[in-house]
Amino acid sequence: MILLSIQEMTKRFGGLVALNALNINVKEKSIHSIIGPNGAGKTTFFNCLTGFYRPEEGEVMFNGQSIVGLSPDRIVHKGISRTYQNIRLFPNLTALENVMVGYHVHLKSGFFGPILGLKKTRMEEEKATQIALDLLKYVNMEGREDTLAKNFPYGEQRRLEMARALASQPKLLLLDEPTAGMNPKETQDMMDFIQHMRGELGITIILIEHQMRVVMNISDIVTVFDYGKMIAEGLPEEIKNNKTVIEAYLGTGEAADSH
């Protein structure tokens, strides 16, 4: 079943066409990788999906609803969550608070509930705290909930960001280079973790990734961007041997010769 369907999505910045008439379908519970050279428009693609940018043309159907042009906070409510290429935690909030902010969309308490200390609000808070603690445990950060986010080492910040993204209980998770700056061991852990998320939590994942090893190992399907255009799509093995893709990455033979 198709969870996310993108039709003819185009985004322009002035004269530059950042995304050019993209057509992508993402199957439910799949790991769908987006690859492409630098500046191919991958992060712009994420920003269009999450509502930071508004594409000029095209339609995005998520779970049967159109989400194009919605503000980012409404898109989260529909069930899409993301992480960032350069980690963006709330640096001066604790780990627990960071994750609880992620759970924000599921909290119903209003303004007076917490002031009056209503039982309903307190129960809800307790539940939220429990869920956040569980998520921290899930990303192997048990017992560190009171540490400020900025005080974690790099790898843990990545995992904390992941926990925060999971806290909104998304159907679709967008991961922007989750293994950037990681050593082989950490990368392997992250790959296992991503597969776990898909397997245990049943989350669909779109992944932007540079490390081919990761892409080839865990992706169900791979889409290749170049200059805002989709130049290939297929199973990892197909992409590996696709001539256009190789050219996009290495340059055409003629260009290489002329150097």
Partner: peptide
């Protein structure tokens, strides 16, 4: 210590990300 307070502080820390966490 409530949802609202956390939303305020998240917004203070990083507005864009706060919005991407579903905060209006």
């Amino acid at each position: 210590k409530s949802k609202i307070g956390r939303a305020w502080m998240a917004m203070r820390e990083d507005e864009d990300v706060a919005q991407a966490m579903g905060i209006n």
